[in-house]
Design a binder for these strands. Sequence first.
DNA 1: GAAACTCTGTGAACGAGAACTCAATCACGG
DNA 2: CCGTGATTGAGTTCTCGTTCACAGAGTTTC
Lengths: 208, 208
Amino acid sequence: MRYHKVPDETIRRLPVYLRGLCSFPNNGSHSISSQQLADILHVKSPQVRKDLSYFGDIGTPGVGYDIQKLTKHIRAILQLNNVHCAALVGYGNLGAALLKYTGFGTFCIEINTVFEKDPRKIGRVVRNIKIEEVSKISSLSKRGISIAILAIPAAESQDVTDKLVNAGVGGILNFTSSYLSVPANVKVINIDIGVSLACLPYYLPVGA
Amino acid sequence: MRYHKVPDETIRRLPVYLRGLCSFPNNGSHSISSQQLADILHVKSPQVRKDLSYFGDIGTPGVGYDIQKLTKHIRAILQLNNVHCAALVGYGNLGAALLKYTGFGTFCIEINTVFEKDPRKIGRVVRNIKIEEVSKISSLSKRGISIAILAIPAAESQDVTDKLVNAGVGGILNFTSSYLSVPANVKVINIDIGVSLACLPYYLPVGA
DNA sequence: GAAACTCTGTGAACGAGAACTCAATCACGG
DNA sequence: CCGTGATTGAGTTCTCGTTCACAGAGTTTC
């Protein structure tokens, strides 16, 4: 199931819609209108309709969207119907926090593999996961893991990325501050905490 | 120093430029061309020129941009010339990781205040910072802190945000999954780790 | 000192995404 | 069974940001 040409921005909003649907109070009604959904998520209602219309006729005019059906549909689009296992590379401060992070469950994503360079950490067991050395990344393809989370120092990021790509990883969530060069069929999503924070002072009133 | 109308996207790239300049090998030359800068950061060279041109004539035709001068200039634009203190709200997994995070130093931002709800953590000292209770947020204005990092459960986010805004905070880095409602003069930057991760499966080859 | 070369700054074209608008569709009540 | 009200889906417009192309300024070379 692959769709024509959907804006990345739309894809990015789908998980937000999903979360909105989960939190929608089940007050008897089976359906929700684009306006209601828009209000919850603080976007405009035409935006919601347009986003959803990329994937065929999901709603029914005069009524709205069937909540359960819509939820299932979005999960199907995002390929979140079956659990995805993800590998975490780097068990430093951030890595440890991510492993304990509970916000992935809603989206059926579960970190079940951890790699680390530091020999002192290798072998330790956290949350039933044994920390492995980075050279074991090559075994990911055999384990059917195609998503990786990169939380290591910038200097090693390209090196590890190459290993991940070779192991068949198709999606990388990059917390590193460096640009990752990957083949076209691999998707990288960057989260640069430093840059985001550095933008804030610009918006402060002058002299603050 | 406030400039006409600069795209948010441009502002977001400035810290990246800054980092690129820092890592540029000091090989005798004092200047760098838009092309060189573009190559390092994997953007197009007209993009670099346009971004920088919003802030007046910084470069010299035929030569390029004086590295030191440009660095200073970007820091001035972003208001990063003097150190900014930031308050961290929430000392959970993520909060603890952020406090230890070293990536903020490049941008002259330093977390020097920590608030937490859990009474067992209040009073503890980490990195010379004493963890305070959330009710002390109101004292931020007196301390001249106008940037906050929000790393708490979604349920309490709006509550704490209101407290922050009342205390004169003008910029919030929001790791919470919820939308924050703030007055127009307060800037919120959202980092939603769950959503970013949830997007990845969409891009995987079907059936992976 | 002039010509050739390099690189910036900017106006204009282009493209993507968001907001608007309205016709078509469906449920429901009389 | 038909009219009324509600809401979707899509075509259009608008806004924002990126890319392009070129004029002009500075530097180097002969």
